[in-house]
Design a protein around this nucleic acid. Structure first.
Length: 916
RNA sequence: GCUCGGGUGAUGGAAUGGUAGACAUAGCGGACUUAAAAUCCGCUGGCUUAACGGCCGUACGGGUUCGAGUCCCGUCCCGAGUACCA
């Protein structure tokens, strides 16, 4: 313990115990432990230059409470921390200042580690990891090679989001409303050679796997929608016109039951078949339309979505079910990237087709009928199920049955088949940046690739289909994986971190690193200029200049914590067998689709290639809600109407005068006790630098201590809710801690005289303590920390009122407090005479009371309205309780002169007497 | 538009269908103090009553129930996600 000061000197206490936990490695988890394991994972932070945000300690405190609670329950707990340290900010800083991103990163990590330690988390710092450490990204690269080998990584020249300002491409997920997620810069479409991961091959498994997971429903739904599986059919339509005889137009539809209602077809402007379809007469119009669309960014295309556009090709298709001729149009509301890039349009039963048909005066034929609750037919268009009409032999059928019947007919006639489509696209995996993991790939000629494929070095390391592309000079280059013994492939030192602007990363400027020779029999790599690289086996090779996106390192970090220094595998078999995967994973909901989907994908891949035994990484997931800034004044309302938007508003001048003194006095804008008809409106916003409402955890810790910060963040409200910060509110938990201190520590600094061995506690104190043990235990299990803290506050009031307390009870309470406020708990635990850490002391068990004569309070209602209250023994019979209830003065008054029709008595809860 | 989530005192929030507002903040009053801070005690949803008590009250309108903040139907408002995915 610290020196026996009489005051609650939180700064000294917290420093002392943080150092002791560090020195003693109190929270180090051994893989060889005989105890049951519990693995608690936080989403690791990006160590930004801005330092710890007030939101970080929220999730970390929650997981820390759980970790400490599990330690106290005899578990061997893995609660690690690490750094997701590749990323754009450090690189942008490098572009500006020339500082190496590694230097920025390591300084930021230092700062983050210091800040996180100052909150007093029970973290196993022996297992700290850093995604930018070569011993870590060696395995990120190794995993990429597994993906490559399995044919799940390929290159593709395709339109991608290019951000000129950032000089890089971005993933779909990183583009929000036509702007980059980072920096909010405009983006455009560009065709570039990119690495892509075949996540779509896992689409079904990624949906199915969700079923067994203990995740928030909303997150499961988000992922399911993101993958966007839809079942339907592919149908071939023959083109009727002479100039396009024999052409077939294949469409995807989820509603084959509406086939008889198809009155026209639409192909995407980019669809290659358009050239073949277009008639001479429509040639110019179609060309003009396609040009117009091509010049538009996707943002414009979406913006124009209000009014549908399109143009007739001049061609017609034959509806395969009824032989009718229907016109084929080109329109940008059909996307080339989904389905087949062509649709059959059924305006009667699709909103978009209906809108288009109305605009261009195309026929609308209803083929399904449905009536509302009053028996009136639903107006067109409606997209639900119903009874088939206008559909020849299918008329009269239920549309769901017709769907199956029509698909079967199409399959029999071989003009269609059932089919599944996904919204999910393959994962664009390369970035034109410096500060990321380099791809362990060399580009070589076809001959070199063939030679290498015969060598034992690459035996079983190459994909079934070689990955290749044609460079600007027309030469075809093949992707040859770097032999595993040459990992990690480190980044070269360069002077200029600016993107090359041509679509290549700054790595393209590191010519010594870039251009190498590789020995196709031994796999050795040397710089091009190296004189040792001579002989027939040595061939020219160029390294891949792209780097991996930031997601790569975070896709598997949870595995590395289990075995952080293993240099022969990403995770060893023993570590995997013992730790398995996180029992509990907590982090923000903003990662609901990206990180959490990518990590699941990699996990399944690693399972498939035999590295892992399990198929899903995160069995139990929880999202903490974000902490918003303090409530801010937004304006005044009078009789429900806005009378002033801000303090200076003239319209609200009178109201401002009325309330300003109150506002001044309380120092908070949202207090109103003025004119009753005037309300002050306030709301809270996300914390941001520009708004100036950022709360720095360091300031809170120096003013109130880490224990207060932890307690307050947990007391703020339910963990999963968004909630506003309120610096005033922290006074409450700070007072709570000071009160505890005063109950335990006397004025002389010794243990309070109130606490002594050998006294027996007052029954009411014992009861309060027992209730607190129960409530705190169950609330930790269910992560309801706010009510657990309330309960401890209730116990403290009981303790303050008691004249004496036994040492045993005093210790019990400290054990309950320890996960929440570990520093003060350790200090008081030590002052109570204990030598080892309170964090390892066994968790208190509630004592079940058997006393039948224990009095319980019950409410008494007459006709459902509360009329009185009574106290009865726990063992009292219903009759006894009812009699007591009826004899209550107020109850008697309400039932007097009336007939009792029913009596409800729930012992221990409530009595309700129904009278007439 | 669609899909979720949510509307409870001045504020953050409590309430397995069973005494609405626990706990805390802010406020008011009091004790201690030369004073302030700190600390302790009391009050604090609205209306009504001298008081006991009564009436109303969980966004709004209905319903189920002995009993509804909680369950069901409809409406309004706020927040999040998503968007021509055929």
């Amino acid at each position: 313990m610290t020196d026996k000061t009489a005051d609650y000197n939180f700064t000294e206490i917290e420093k002392f115990w943080q150092k002791k936990w560090d020195d003693d490695r109190t929270f180090h988890a051994e893989t060889s432990s005989p105890s049951p394991k519990y693995y608690i994972l936080d989403m690791f932070p990006y160590p930004s230059g801005a330092g710890l945000h007030i939101g970080h300690p929220e999730g970390y405190t929650a997981s820390d409470i759980l970790a400490r609670y599990k330690w106290a329950n005899g578990f061997n707990v893995l609660h690690p921390m690490g750094w997701d340290a590749f990323g754009l900010p450090a690189e942008q800083y490098a572009v500006k200042t020339g500082t190496h991103p590694a230097a920025t990163t390591s300084a930021n990590i230092e700062n983050f580690r210091k800040q996180i330690k100052s909150v007093g988390f029970a973290i196993d710092w022996q297992r700290e990891i850093n995604t930018t450490d070569p011993s870590y990204f060696k395995w990120t690269q190794w995993i990429f090679l597994q993906l490559f080998k399995m044919g799940l990584a390929y290159v593709d020249e395709k339109p991608v989001w290019w951000c000129p300002k950032l000089g890089t491409v971005l993933a779909n997920e990183e583009v929000i409303d036509g702007k980059s997620e980072v920096g909010k810069f405009p983006v455009e479409r560009r065709k570039l050679r990119q690495w892509v991961l075949r996540i779509t091959a896992y689409a079904d498994r990624l949906i199915k796997g969700l079923g067994s997971l203990d995740w928030p429903d909303s997150t499961k739904r988000l992922q399911t929608n993101w993958i966007g599986r839809s079942e339907g059919a592919e149908v071939d339509f023959e083109v009727a016109d002479s100039w396009a005889k024999g052409q077939k137009l294949r469409v995807f539809t989820t509603r084959p039951d509406t086939l008889y209602g198809a009155t026209y077809m639409v192909v995407a402007p980019e669809h290659p078949i358009v050239d073949k379809l277009v008639s001479d007469r429509q040639k110019d119009a179609v060309a003009a339309y396609r040009k117009e669309i091509a010049s538009k960014s996707d943002l414009d295309r979406t913006d124009l979505a209000k009014e549908k556009t399109g143009v007739f090709t001049g061609a017609h298709a034959i509806n395969p079910v009824n032989g009718k001729l229907i016109p084929i149009w080109v329109a940008d509301y059909v996307l080339m990237s989904y389905g087949t890039g062509a649709i059959m349009a059924v305006p009667a039963h699709d909103d978009r087709d209906y809108e288009f048909a109305k605009r261009f005066d195309l026929p609308v034929i209803p083929v399904i009928e449905k009536k509302d609750s009053e028996g009136n037919p639903l107006p067109l268009p409606f997209c639900s199920q119903g009874t088939m009409i206008n559909s020849e032999k299918f008329s009269g059928m239920d549309s769901g049955d017709a769907k199956r019947a029509i698909v079967k007919m199409l399959e029999d006639k071989k003009i269609g088949k059932s089919s599944v489509n996904y919204k999910l696209r393959d994962w664009l995996f390369s970035r034109q940046r410096y500060w990321g993991e380099p791809f362990p790939i060399l580009w070589v000629s076809e001959d070199a690739y063939k030679a290498a494929s015969k060598s034992a070095v690459w035996n079983g390391k190459l994909p079934a289909e070689p990955v290749s592309y044609k460079d600007e000079s027309g030469k075809i280059l093949f992707a040859l994986p770097l032999p595993e013994n040459q990992l990690p492939l480190k980044l070269p030192e360069i002077e200029n971190y600016r993107p090359s602007g041509t679509g290549e990363s700054p790595l393209a400027r590191a010519s010594g690193w870039l251009n190498v020779k590789i020995n196709v029999s031994t796999g050795e790599v040397l710089e091009s200029a190296d004189s040792r690289a001579c002989g027939a086996d040595w061939v020219e090779a160029r390294r891949e200049t792209n780097t991996m996106p930031q997601w790569a390192g975070s896709c598997w970090y949870y595995l590395r914590y289990c075995d952080p220094s293993n240099d022969s595998a990403p995770i060893g078999a023993e570590a995997e067998a013992y730790w398995g995967y996180p029992d509990f994973y907590i982090g923000g909901a903003e990662h609901a689709v990206l990180h959490l989907l990518y990590a699941r994908f990699w996990h399944k891949v690693l399972h498939d290639c035999g590295v892992l035994s399990g198929d899903e990484p995160f069995k139990r997931l929880f999202h903490q809600g974000i902490i918003l800034g303090e409530l801010e004044f937004t304006g005044y309302k009078k009789d429900g109407k806005w009378i002033g938007a801000d303090k200076s508003s003239e319209a609200g001048a009178e109201a401002v005068k009325l309330s300003e003194s109150e506002v001044e006095k309380s120092g908070a804008a949202y207090v109103l006790k003025c004119d009753k008809t005037v309300t002050v409106e306030a709301r809270s916003y996300k914390m941001s630098k520009s708004r100036g409402n950022v709360v720095n955890p360091d300031d809170i810790i120096s003013k109130y201590g880490a224990d207060s910060l932890r307690l307050y963040e947990m007391f703020l409200g339910p963990l999963e809710d968004q909630k506003p910060w309120n610096t005033n509110g922290i006074e409450g938990v700070y007072r709570f801690l000071k009160k505890i201190w005063r109950e335990y520590v006397g004025k002389d600094g010794n243990l309070s005289e109130k606490i002594s061995d050998g006294v027996s506690d007052d029954p009411s104190l014992l009861k309060a303590l027992n209730e607190t043990v129960k409530k705190v235990t169950s609330d930790i299990e269910t992560l309801r920390f706010n009510t657990a803290i309330s309960q401890m506050m209730i116990f403290l009031s009981a303790l303050q009122k008691a004249e004496r307390v036994s040492k045993a009870s005093a210790e019990k309470f400290i054990k309950l407090l320890a996960p929440f406020a570990p520093h003060i708990a350790e200090e008081l635990w030590a002052r109570l005479g204990n030598v080892s850490s309170v964090s390892k002391a066994p968790w208190p068990k509630p004592e079940e009371s058997n006393a039948d004569d224990e009095p319980v309070k019950m409410a008494v209602q007459v006709n459902g309205k509360l009329r009185g209250e009574l106290t009865a023994a726990k063992s009292a019979t219903k009759d006894e309780i009812l009699e007591a209830a009826k004899s209550l003065k107020n109850v008697a008054a309400f039932i007097g002169g009336k007939t009792v029709v029913r009596e409800i008595c729930v012992p221990g809860k409530i009595v309700n007497i129904v009278v007439k």
